[in-house]
Design a binder for these strands. Sequence first.
DNA 1: GATGAATGAGCATTCATTCAT
DNA 2: CATGAATGAATGCTCATTCAT
Lengths: 209, 209, 209, 209
Amino acid sequence: MRRKKETGSGSAAAEKCSVFQKRRMQIVKKATRLFAKKGYAQTSMREISKATGIDLSNLYYFIESKEEILFRVFEMIHRPESSVFENQAIMGLEDPAEQLRAVIREMMRFSILYKDEVLLLYRESKQLPKKLLKEILARESGFIRHIESILRKGLEKKAFAMEDPAFTAGLIAYELSLYPLRSWNLKHYSQADLIRRVERHIMGAVLAT
Amino acid sequence: MRRKKETGSGSAAAEKCSVFQKRRMQIVKKATRLFAKKGYAQTSMREISKATGIDLSNLYYFIESKEEILFRVFEMIHRPESSVFENQAIMGLEDPAEQLRAVIREMMRFSILYKDEVLLLYRESKQLPKKLLKEILARESGFIRHIESILRKGLEKKAFAMEDPAFTAGLIAYELSLYPLRSWNLKHYSQADLIRRVERHIMGAVLAT
Amino acid sequence: MRRKKETGSGSAAAEKCSVFQKRRMQIVKKATRLFAKKGYAQTSMREISKATGIDLSNLYYFIESKEEILFRVFEMIHRPESSVFENQAIMGLEDPAEQLRAVIREMMRFSILYKDEVLLLYRESKQLPKKLLKEILARESGFIRHIESILRKGLEKKAFAMEDPAFTAGLIAYELSLYPLRSWNLKHYSQADLIRRVERHIMGAVLAT
Amino acid sequence: MRRKKETGSGSAAAEKCSVFQKRRMQIVKKATRLFAKKGYAQTSMREISKATGIDLSNLYYFIESKEEILFRVFEMIHRPESSVFENQAIMGLEDPAEQLRAVIREMMRFSILYKDEVLLLYRESKQLPKKLLKEILARESGFIRHIESILRKGLEKKAFAMEDPAFTAGLIAYELSLYPLRSWNLKHYSQADLIRRVERHIMGAVLAT
DNA sequence: GATGAATGAGCATTCATTCAT
DNA sequence: CATGAATGAATGCTCATTCAT
């Protein structure tokens, strides 16, 4: 799944490139919908073609294979996820408890908004070939390490108490996917309630005393 | 997916039925392996036929469709899960904290042992038609209600503290699937460590003060 | 391209087996025609299906891939070819010149009769994967070695004269494919003329003085 | 496959034409390589485009179809072949035996050098439409007639002995393609050995007594 | 109960070629 | 001359399921 030519730079090329990428984005977005609704294997390229309005053969002008679409779907999900840790309003917070709370709220909002996509990630990631799967898991690991560093800061300041911050970070990351994986059981909660309850549960498990 | 004739009653029928069911069990067990390894859609009836040694056409004597196999796979997974709540050694415990701990330990053991099957449940349950999916979710709801009742008992006794025991029960049930859904990140923990850490986390979130 | 189960022995099985093989033979024969007329790559499985009257999917019940068909086509060509050397009327001849003449005549008859198939062998053998190609070439090598042994016998008896009987055997084997590869230039020769002329040419090159 | 406009005459046009032809030559040469390596049907226009560096659409500015490329490939192969008979050093020889030997040596050298191309000719010529195929075969016939005339001269001078010089000429022409068609069996011969052995074989069949 | 064969729709992908710019 | 996009038909192959014996 080598990247396409990724046509040079320069203003003219830049424009063309963006058209190319826009098309690809369009494909990936529509595919996300379809994959979420019917599953990856159950979605045919013909359906993606029909949904995007791009002729089946031309689809292959923008992507190399169905597999590449799945990979790009996952890539797209992870992009905003990691943006949380570039948010200065959050990363600048001094108090680790406040910071953790902010991350939880932000990520819960995200996971509720992109519930289908996150579910897809859990459901279909096995379809990726090993190499690409590793790339996806590496991103998730990065996210977990960020949480871990917050936990460690809290431990130093005696604000938090826990045996194994690496493990707890992983568990917290997992808890933040509650809604996508369990929405059938959470339909009657408002988003605010949901976020507050998860936040409380996690903070209860983490705060000292 | 109407059930088969379920050949009348009477002793002769009963015997046939049990041979019949044994065969079906054999199919479901082999299919579980295959589904877990390759995914539901990627496993063909021919492969199931080859794995069980039952001729492709005869497979349809024991099950009505591929979908039914998936349903029975899920059914089989849920059976031991619910047996926890028939375990008198656990259900007889007076102290809600002890009882919750026992349930956590038992379920963690189970989810680690049947990691592939539980993952399957999350991954492929959407493939079921609505009716059967509801049946599966109903079982899970029953499990959650059992946890909830333990939590409520703990609240009454002021051993536990939480805003919404129904929600917390759901979240705990979810946390107990940590290993199947996140094993890639937990490979270097021993089973005992894993169980202890999850137990601590949950109890930390639930115990009063 | 593993062989199918090749169902056991026993009279009942034997009958079934032969039906299976008859079907396969039917496929291979029709495919030979089509490959000869249009080329291997240009002949679609759908055409083979139509020509044999066997449904496209059922075709794959009898063969594993298009490639297997090609292999079996070649196999079928080689079978009668090697039968020349089991022909006692020929192999029993004392005089090497007579024996060589008999082989030439026999093989020419064969190559004229199976001109399309032999041409196919030259034209499409590259389409086979290495392993199968080697199998085919090994058969041809066996044929060449048979000729070589006749030449050597003739050399011993001073009936033949040549520098390198292995080379000459290969060249003779090649000359015997004249008609399939050059029929466009030989249309106005009768089979008898053709055979006699090739025989003379080869004998002229091989006989002492 | 009508030829392109063949833009008029005149000096300006002539220049254009030669650039045009150079490009076309470049295409044909690269295509020869590809066709030889992968086969005609298995080589896509996209590959030819990539190999030549000429954009896929622009390819069609220089050639009318993939078929035309194949035709020009064959045409190019035949050009040096026929040059043997314009070679005065050879055509001027008085002794027919010497002349035949010279032709054999020259053509063997050629067929060894262009083994892939000659093989291509045998393998893929059927892909051509009848009209173009005839054009190719006509060239080959011309070559055969040249050999025939040498043979006839030898017959007159009683240097050669044969029943049917036209037939023998065809057979000799065929023998000269030994290496391209049988190289798998001739790998361990040096070019000189190969040439000498073929020469001896043919001369043995042709010389009087 | 077991078996071989049938059915027909579906799959991802690739092709030579053309067109508008 | 060059480019990106379009077209639409074709490719080999697999599928769940059924049927006649």
